[in-house]
Every structure is written in C-alpha cells, then in structure tokens.
Amino acid sequence: MRDPLPVPARAVRTELVVERSRFLTTLEPVDGAAAAEAVVARVRREFPDARHHCTAAVLGEDGGLARSHDDGEPAGTAGAPMLAALRGAGVTGVVAVVTRYFGGVLLGTGGLVRAYGGSVGAALAAAGVVRRRWVDLVDVRAGLADGGRVEAELRRTRAVEDVAWSADGWRAVVAVPVGAVGVLRAELAAAGLRTSAEPLSRAVRPCP
C-alpha cells in the first residue's frame, strides 16, 4: 500500500517584496475543501484592501483534488504557479493564499509567475512537512495484573494510544506497520505476556 503524501507541519505566513509589490503568503494545513475555503475567506477579511487574493490547494490523501484561482491577475500567472509549487513539494492537505498589494510597477507575465510561485515555495520551506504512513490499529487487552507490564513493553517500540483501565482489565490501541499484527502477537508472547491483540482498522499516522 502506498503511503499518503506529506502534509505541512504548521501554518505560516511569509512576505516577499518584488518591485515594491508585497506578496503575503498564508499557508495552512487543512483537512478538506470546506476548511480550505474557510482559510481563504478569513484572509480576505483580514486584508480587505488588497488588490488580489490568489489561491491554490491540494487535498486528499493522494493529492487527487487540486484547485487554483488567479483572482484578477492575468490567467495562468498566479494560481497555476502557486499550485505548481505545492505539487513540486509533493504535499497535500494544504491551502495557500497569496495576498498582493500592488507597488505601482508592472511585473509582466514572467515576473508574476516567479513572484507567486516563489512566495509559496518560501512558505513551504518555512512550514516544513510531516511525513505519514498507513498503519494497522490493533486492540490489545490484558488482565489487571498484567496491564502495567504489557504497556511498558509496548511503549519501548510501539505507538500506544487510548490506554484505558477498567474492572475488566487493561486495554489500549497500538499502531503497527500494515500487515504486522502477527509480529506484534509474537513479540508479546515471546516476552511472556498474556494478552489478546485484534485488528481494529487501518489509519494514517505521522512517521516516527
């Protein structure tokens, strides 16, 4: 199974000045189209006097949904180079808004392409990325007497989530590489731990 594309590590805002025109780039991780549209709307409200708010977004685990908008700039000079910068970085789950304050000097087609693409490239460099992978989530259970030892053993090498104690015993969700549930069972058995380990679902998690 192919791992999903990386996502931006954090939201950033950067600024590029070209021939007195200011290009303010807002780049944020988003979880879908509605969230991307909300970022664009917020930036428009924040800078209502700017001449252009050009946008680009890549969405979906495999980056299959992409969109861009020139917002009044000559066709292909803003949204397309912004989208090309996102595509070139190999990220998804991201929206970029470049807010332009015109400085009085015409940049020409090539100048606009370089400014908008370069603005997004600089924002991506500032944000960094989080690489991700598919994992199998496994429900691991143990008795009250063994729960502490099982948790300690798991935390040495595994990502442990949703730990819970109850009158029935100890349980947690453990992330393992896809197809490695049997390996986890063998490791717990080799450590002399009495547990059950049953697959729950498949999910995306950051790479360690």
Rank of each mutant, 00 (worst) to 15 (best):
residue 186 A to K: 11
residue 119 S to G: 15
residue 105 V to S: 08
residue 50 A to D: 09
residue 188 L to R: 11
residue 63 G to W: 05
residue 55 T to Q: 03
residue 194 R to Q: 12
residue 64 G to A: 14
residue 202 R to V: 13
residue 46 E to P: 02
residue 157 T to H: 14
residue 18 V to N: 01
residue 3 D to M: 05
residue 114 R to Y: 13
residue 135 V to A: 15
residue 107 L to P: 15
residue 60 G to Q: 08
residue 144 L to V: 12
residue 115 A to C: 12
residue 75 A to H: 15
residue 185 R to S: 05
residue 63 G to A: 02
residue 106 L to C: 01
residue 170 W to E: 02
residue 88 G to Q: 05
residue 13 R to G: 01
residue 37 E to W: 12
residue 132 R to K: 15
residue 162 D to P: 03
residue 33 A to G: 03
residue 163 V to E: 13
residue 164 A to Y: 01
residue 159 A to I: 07
residue 147 G to C: 11
residue 121 G to D: 08
residue 132 R to Q: 15
residue 84 A to V: 01
residue 7 V to G: 00
residue 49 D to V: 11
residue 44 R to M: 05
residue 17 V to E: 12
residue 8 P to D: 00
residue 77 T to I: 08
residue 115 A to L: 08
residue 35 A to K: 08
residue 21 S to I: 12
residue 18 V to Q: 06
residue 57 A to Q: 03
residue 87 R to M: 01
residue 151 E to Q: 12
residue 189 A to F: 07
residue 92 T to I: 04
residue 172 A to F: 04
residue 183 V to M: 06
residue 53 H to V: 11
residue 154 L to N: 10
residue 42 R to G: 14
residue 68 S to C: 15
residue 81 P to M: 05
residue 12 V to I: 03
residue 36 A to L: 09
residue 159 A to G: 06
residue 52 H to A: 10
residue 7 V to M: 01
residue 193 L to S: 13
residue 23 F to M: 10
residue 149 R to W: 01
residue 55 T to K: 07
residue 91 V to L: 04
residue 19 E to K: 13
residue 15 E to A: 06
residue 102 F to K: 00
residue 40 V to E: 15
residue 59 L to C: 05
residue 143 G to S: 15
residue 61 E to A: 15
residue 134 W to Y: 14
residue 9 A to Q: 09
residue 42 R to Q: 14
residue 93 G to W: 10
residue 195 T to N: 09
residue 193 L to T: 12
residue 169 G to V: 06
residue 208 P to E: 15
residue 175 A to G: 09
residue 71 D to H: 10
residue 119 S to T: 09
residue 190 A to W: 11
residue 96 A to T: 06
residue 98 V to M: 07
residue 206 P to Q: 04
residue 51 R to S: 13
residue 119 S to R: 04
residue 28 E to L: 09
residue 100 R to D: 06
residue 11 A to D: 06
residue 161 E to V: 00
residue 199 P to K: 10
residue 173 V to R: 10
residue 25 T to S: 10
residue 102 F to P: 08
residue 183 V to E: 14
residue 120 V to H: 07
residue 141 R to Q: 14
residue 124 L to K: 06
residue 99 T to Y: 05
residue 178 V to D: 07
residue 30 V to M: 06
residue 202 R to M: 08
residue 163 V to P: 00
residue 90 G to M: 06
residue 112 L to A: 13
residue 103 G to P: 14
residue 65 L to E: 14
residue 139 D to I: 04
residue 18 V to P: 00
residue 55 T to F: 07
residue 111 G to T: 13
residue 9 A to P: 02
residue 98 V to G: 11
residue 32 G to H: 10
residue 149 R to F: 04
residue 187 E to Q: 15
residue 179 G to T: 02
residue 169 G to C: 08
residue 27 L to V: 06
residue 34 A to G: 08
residue 194 R to I: 03
residue 23 F to R: 07
residue 158 R to S: 10
residue 182 G to V: 05
residue 6 P to Y: 03
residue 181 V to W: 00
residue 107 L to T: 13
residue 189 A to H: 09
residue 37 E to L: 11
residue 191 A to K: 10
residue 186 A to Q: 14
residue 13 R to I: 00
residue 128 G to S: 14
residue 76 G to H: 08
residue 150 V to R: 07
residue 90 G to S: 04
residue 140 V to A: 11
residue 20 R to I: 00
residue 131 R to Q: 15
residue 81 P to L: 10
residue 15 E to P: 01
